[in-house]
Design a protein around this nucleic acid. Structure first.
Lengths: 186, 186
DNA sequence: AGGCCCATGTAATCTGTTACATGATTCC
DNA sequence: GGAATCATGTAACAGATTACATGGGCCT
C-alpha cells in the first residue's frame, strides 16, 4: 500500500491527469516513486471510487479530452495517517547489481556494455533533475529556496533523486574501469 | 524474474543454506537485492526442482540440520543468459520519499521523527558494510583488492550499497535540519 | 506513410507481502 | 524463565508486470 499515497502526494501541489502522472511515475523521471501507466490508471480509479481524489473532465479540441485529479479532504487525511504510520526500510532494485555480483563468473564484455549504457542513461537523468530543481527555485539560491520556498517536498525528493543518479553514474563508470583493468591482466 | 538470479549470484562464491541466504537478503544487510525469508525458501525449492542449484544435507548435532546449496552448470548457464539480456532501469523504493514529497501539507514532527530514526539505521548499515568490505580485502588496500582480489562481484556491489546508505543518511539528516529550520519560522 | 505523443483503460500472469506453523538451542 | 537465533516451510492476499486494446493529431 504505497502507490496510492505516492499518487496522493504527487497531486498535492498541482492537478494532474492520469497521463501526466503515468509519465512522472513511469518514464525516466520517477524521482520519488516508480509505477507503470496501467498501474497508475487502476490506482486512480480506486482512489476516486473511495473519494480520496476528485476528477474533473477537461474538454480539449485538438487533443483527446482528459481528466484532472485533485486530492480531497478525505485523501489528505489518509496521507496524514500514512505519514504518521511506521515506515519500511528503503531498498535499491537494480538488475545490474545482481549481474555485477556475478562478475568473475560471467562474461565481462556484456557487463561492461550494459554498465556503459546505464551510465549514459543516468547522466541524462542527472541533467533532467538539475533542470527540474533550477526551474523550481527560479532565481533564488538553493539555500534560500530550502528555507522559504513553497513546494519544499518535491524539491527535497528531487534532490535525493539527483544524488541517487549521480551515485549510480559514478559507480557504473568506476565499475567499468575496474572490469576493464582486470580483463587486461586476469 | 530477478530473485532467482540474485540467489544464483549469491551462491557463486560460497555454499549457503536457506537460512543464511534469507538473512543476507532480508535483514539489514541486503547489499544487492532484497527479499523475505519465505520468498527465498520458495525460490530455492523452484531452483532445485529445475536443476539450477543442488542441495546437500548437513547433519548438525547441536543445531537443526540444514541444507547447503551450490549452483549447477545449468544454473551458471542461466545466469550467463540473464547477464547478457537487457536490464531494466534501477529505482529506489522508500516510503519516506513519499512522505517527504508531502512535506508542507502534513505534520512535520512525524516526518522529523521518522527521518531521525532512519538516519540512525542507515548509519548502522554504513558501519556494517564498511566492516564487510574490510573483511573481504583483509590487509590489502582497496585499490589493490579491486585489481587482483577474488570475490570482485560481492566487493563491488557492497561498495554500491555502502554509498547508497551514506547518501541516505546524509539526505535524511539534511532534510531533518531543513524541516526544523522551516518549522521555526514558517 | 510511418512513428511518436496524447489519452485511457482491461485481463492474465507473475512477484512480493502478510499471516500462519513448528521446534530445538543458546544467551541473558 | 523468556527472548533471540537457528532452521524450514505453506497458504492467502496484495502489488506489480506483461500483453492486449483503441484512436486521433503532429512531425518528418
Amino acid at each position: 500500500m504505497a502507490l496510492r499515497h505516492a499518487v496522493l502526494a504527487a497531486l498535492l501541489d498541482e492537478e494532474l491527469s492520469g497521463y501526466q502522472l503515468a509519465k512522472a511515475f513511469g518514464m525516466g523521471v520517477a524521482n520519488f516513486w516508480h509505477a507503470l501507466p496501467q498501474q497508475v490508471y487502476v490506482e486512480l480509479a480506486k482512489l476516486e471510487q473511495e473519494g480520496l481524489i476528485a476528477g474533473r473532465e477537461v474538454v480539449q479540441d485538438t487533443r483527446p479530452n482528459k481528466r484532472l485529479f485533485q486530492v480531497t479532504a478525505t485523501g489528505l487525511a489518509e496521507l496524514e495517517r500514512f505519514t504518521a504510520a511506521a515506515t519500511k526500510p528503503s531498498s535499491i532494485r537494480d538488475d545490474l547489481l545482481v549481474k555485477v555480483q556475478a562478475a568473475g563468473h560471467v562474461d565481462s564484455d556484456a557487463l561492461i556494455a550494459q554498465l556503459t549504457e546505464r551510465a549514459a542513461f543516468a547522466t541524462g537523468k542527472v541533467e533532467l533533475f538539475e533542470a527540474m530543481l533550477h526551474k523550481m527555485r527560479g532565481e533564488r539560491t538553493e539555500e534560500e529556496y530550502l528555507r522559504h520556498g513553497d513546494r519544499i517536498g518535491p524539491y527535497l525528493t528531487c534532490l535525493r533523486g539527483l544524488d541517487f543518479e549521480r551515485a549510480n553514474r559514478d559507480w557504473y563508470e568506476r565499475t567499468v574501469t575496474i572490469l576493464h583493468e582486470r580483463r587486461r591482466r586476469p
